[in-house]
Simulated scan of single mutants.
Amino acid sequence: MILAMTLLLAFQLAGEGLSRSLALPVPGPVIGMVAMTLCLVLSPRFLALMRPLCEGLLSHLSLLFVPAGVGVIGHLTALGAMGPGLALAIVVSTAVAIAVGALTFTAVAKLTGSEATDD
């Protein structure tokens, strides 16, 4: 399991190094994750090596949200003061995202000719 953890961190480090050295707009951990996913897909041996570590991390994933919850509780008064603005931002951004998604879907359907016909 130590080898698997070392490999996991090595992929993250390689992605970070690549992202910074090439000034890519993609975060290093994302590059490392894509590279590791390719290795997992292409190598059954690598998959077997990483499986126990990944299952262990995923089974305790909820613990990774504890620091965020503590931060929210620690700044509860500030969040309370900004509550109406945050609620409005969430509602408006959700509505805009749904509208843009629907418009994009409609535009792509028209461009590809797969628009439904009315009978």
Rank of each mutant, 00 (worst) to 15 (best):
Q12P: 08
A89G: 09
S62P: 04
M82P: 04
V100T: 03
L79M: 01
A4E: 01
L47H: 12
G32P: 05
V72T: 03
T104D: 01
I2N: 14
V26D: 14
A116P: 10
A4M: 03
V100E: 00
G85C: 00
L13T: 03
A116V: 11
T94R: 05
V26E: 15
S59V: 02
S59K: 05
F65D: 15
L64P: 15
L103W: 02
F46D: 15
S21F: 14
G69E: 00
T104C: 05
V100Q: 02
P25R: 15
A14C: 14
R20E: 02
I2L: 15
A116K: 12
L7G: 09
G101L: 08
P52E: 04
L76K: 08
L18P: 01
P25Y: 11
L18N: 03
L57E: 01
F65A: 15
I90T: 06
A48Y: 10
R45F: 14
L103H: 02
P44E: 02
R51L: 03
P29M: 02
A35C: 11
T77E: 14
R45K: 14
G32C: 07
C54L: 08
V41E: 11
A4C: 01
L53I: 03
L47G: 13
A81G: 10
T112R: 01
H60E: 00
V66T: 04
S62G: 05
G28C: 13
G32F: 06
S21N: 13
A89Y: 09
A35G: 10
G56I: 00
L53K: 04
D119Q: 01
L61A: 15
V92D: 01
A109V: 03
L18E: 08
L8I: 06
M33S: 13
R20C: 05
R45L: 15
V66M: 05
G17H: 06
V92P: 07
R45P: 15
M50Q: 02
L47A: 14
L86M: 09
G56T: 01
L63I: 06
C39R: 15
A99G: 08
L63F: 08
A109L: 06
L111F: 00
L18H: 05
D118R: 01
I73W: 06
A23M: 15
L38Y: 14
A97P: 00
T94C: 01
F65V: 13
G69N: 00
M5T: 13
A81L: 11
A102I: 12
M50K: 01
L58E: 02
D118E: 00
L22W: 12
L86I: 09
G83A: 13
I98S: 12
E55P: 10
A81N: 08
L79C: 01
L76Q: 09
L64N: 13
M33C: 12
V92I: 06
V70G: 03
L8S: 07
L47Y: 10
V34R: 11
E115S: 04
L22S: 12
A89N: 12
A99M: 12
L24S: 10
A102V: 13
I2F: 15
A35H: 08
